[in-house]
Design a binder for these strands. Structure first.
Lengths: 223, 223
DNA sequence: ACGGCTACTACACGTGCGTGTAGCGTACTT
DNA sequence: AAGTACGCTACACGCACGTGTAGTAGCCGT
């Protein structure tokens, strides 16, 4: 299931450049990655990169757009196969993204790939809407907010894969690591980390803290 | 509670440079941030930056070390006050980190600040050890792994704050945003996202998928 | 009082990078 | 068959940045 073909048109130089850029951006980051290096990996001259994509930034945006297309297509496939459980669609997506995980992680961390994140939030929201039907106790927090936070949490392991890999000793961006990760997530998701009473007490403490003076200084965004 | 003094020694030029670096690295990222810009913010010459810290990389490491010291100290304070619930210590930590949240996010996302993440995992592990006592059903996944993943998830909002802020329309790296975030996290943590039966079914599906051919190609690290 | 050490500045060097320009071959159009 | 547009290359420009070097002012020990 979930076959991700290489796209018939993807033998062109433009596609090779885009793939090379995905790889280089993911491996070295946007700033450190060089157009010359990308061109070399793609087997073309550096000028051709600029010819096809106007600038380095535009190249990045093209990479983002490509991933958005790829992920939305994957989402459609997953939603068409509700057999194994739509719940794990995030893990499935992460798996299908494959070699682009590193790019995805960096792009998201650097604040880019906004439409990609938004698409994921939308997907998350759709799933949350269905999940909320089975739960009569509707929380006092916006569904969009929950979707955004949930998406961020789902992406956390991908974004921080280097650290998680180092601590656990398993490369999480690998088939084996993905399996371990899936089990861990299932465990964490199925067991509430907070009992309802603890949650209530904390919420109460939060209310009290909100009414009192905000003791802790915070770093708001200066103008 | 939890007063974070400015450190009596922190009026020196070295400290100002470090703070400026924290700010610039957090705002523009390590690569885009310039020593000259940091020096200007600190009110010193660019040469002095190199004089105190040997290089840009060393400056970054000094920033990491400073944050590690700050966070570990904060952790001690929090562990000494188990009143409001140790559970929310992550949020408290995020609050106290204050103006350095952006740096923290970038550093972690770029793979740096490893000792910092490790320290957080250790803190998470300590808390998990206590929390596991109240839960007789010990899962089949390593506690360190759970701690690492949990830490990553806790840091997700900070790392992806730009996206979460954009989607929710609230600047999460601000006092107001922190409050909304806390409530969201409490809700998400207190309500299991997966029922035990769903978790079991998914786990079973995972086992079946593991035994069959690994259909989905993955992008392992090439040599 | 004096040598030396430290904090600090001003300025020049080299370089790697994104970006611009000119030019060549080839395939499609009429 | 000529014109044209496009894929593609080679090469040069300029700039911003990290880094080095030389030099100055003040503090401390003896």
């Amino acid at each position: 299931m979930v076959m991700t073909g290489p796209d018939p048109e993807d033998l062109t130089a433009r596609a090779r450049i885009r793939d090379a850029a995905l790889l280089h951006f993911g491996e070295h980051g946007f700033e450190r990655a060089t157009i010359r290096g990308i061109a070399e990996t793609a087997g073309v001259s550096s000028g051709l990169v600029r010819h096809h994509f106007g600038s380095k930034q535009a190249l990045r945006e093209a990479c983002d757009a490509h991933l958005v297309k790829l992920i939305s297509r994957l989402n459609d496939q997953v939603r068409a196969h509700p057999t194994t459980g739509d719940v794990n669609y995030v893990a499935a997506a992460r798996a299908a993204i494959g070699p682009y995980q590193r790019y995805l992680a960096r792009a998201l961390a650097e604040g880019g790939a906004a439409p990609l994140f938004d698409a994921m939030v939308q997907m998350s929201e759709q799933w949350l809407a269905e999940a909320d039907k089975n739960r009569p106790d509707i929380p006092d927090v916006d569904r969009t907010t929950r979707a955004a936070v949930g998406t961020a949490m789902a992406l956390a392991i991908t974004v921080l894969h280097k650290h998680v890999s180092r601590v656990t000793g398993v490369e999480v961006l690998s088939p084996e690591g993905d399996l371990l990760l899936a089990r861990t997530l299932i465990d964490l998701y199925s067991h509430p980390m907070l009992s309802l009473e603890d949650a209530a007490s904390i919420r109460a403490a939060l209310d009290k803290l909100q009414s009192t003076s905000p003791q802790m200084d915070r770093g708001g965004t200066p103008p």
